[in-house]
């Protein structure tokens, strides 16, 4: 029996994995700051004697699409939308430096500023703790200004500046926790030119139309491989009937 079906099987596994990745992108079409994932198939050649006809398909997530998502004004003081290729530095649960595009910040009871998924935001000297304030404003260059209780609203004080990095030119990978990291435990230098839009949020950059097309593509790839498997069966049947003794 031909090994055709096993080659087809790897491609089927690949399209299944691709479909899962597309489903994950679609499911996160409304997640704040989500970056859609790109999957690609690549050929893995089997070297050996005879014909080099066996190239198994290997599906891989090659990275995240870093295009910007849609920005909507929300009016909430602690919502920020990062502009261009800026990334917000946060602390990952294991203490390492990580980056995110998620801008719906929240205050903990102790005043610690964190993203809505619970990662403390980094300032110039580590995590930012805000004192009680009448008003909090985040400026477009990341400076956090507060009006102390009973203070003069026209003269806000600077508490800290958000640490912003730039992803362009850096070797950034998306980790299993959805945070971005510099490959090899590096840190992005603080970029004073990075800008953000205050009182707005950047949505996910998943393009539902493109994702649906990918979904159809993956379905069709699956169907094609199934066709191949069924032709392999027909071929087998045909040769088996040739070999049959006339009864």
């Amino acid at each position: 029996m031909d090994r055709l079906i096993y080659t087809s099987l790897t491609a089927m596994r690949g399209s299944m994995a691709r479909q899962t990745a597309v489903a994950n992108n679609l499911a996160n079409a409304q997640t704040i700051g989500f970056r859609s994932e790109i999957t690609r198939a690549q050929a893995a050649w089997l070297d050996g004697q005879g014909m080099d006809t066996r190239a198994y398909g290997v599906e891989a997530v090659i990275g995240a699409d870093m295009r910007a998502g849609t920005v909507t004004a929300t009016g909430r003081d602690l919502d920020i939308a990062l502009q261009g290729d800026a990334l917000l530095a946060v602390q990952a649960p294991d203490g390492s430096a990580a980056y995110t595009r998620r801008g719906d910040l929240q205050l903990s009871p102790s005043g610690l500023l964190a993203t809505a998924d619970g990662h403390p935001v980094q300032g110039q000297q580590g995590p930012i703790t805000l004192p009680p304030a009448d008003a909090i404003t985040i400026e477009s260059d990341g400076r956090i200004l507060i009006v102390p209780p009973g203070g003069d609203a026209s003269q806000p004080q600077e508490v800290d500046r958000l640490r912003l990095g730039t992803s362009t030119g850096a070797d950034i990978v998306k980790g299993l926790d959805g945070l971005f990291r510099v490959r090899g435990d590096g840190v992005l230098p603080d970029d004073p030119d990075a800008r953000l839009i205050a009182r707005s949020l950047e949505g996910s950059n998943v393009n539902p139309t493109a994702a649906m097309v990918e979904m159809i593509e993956a379905s069709k790839a699956w169907d094609t491989q199934l066709k191949l498997i069924s032709s392999a069966r027909d071929l087998d049947n045909a040769s088996a009937s040739l070999m049959q003794l006339p009864s």
Partner: peptide
Amino acid sequence: RYATGLNLGTGV
């Protein structure tokens, strides 16, 4: 060696 990995998300 695989140059890239396969990390599949499990949803939202």
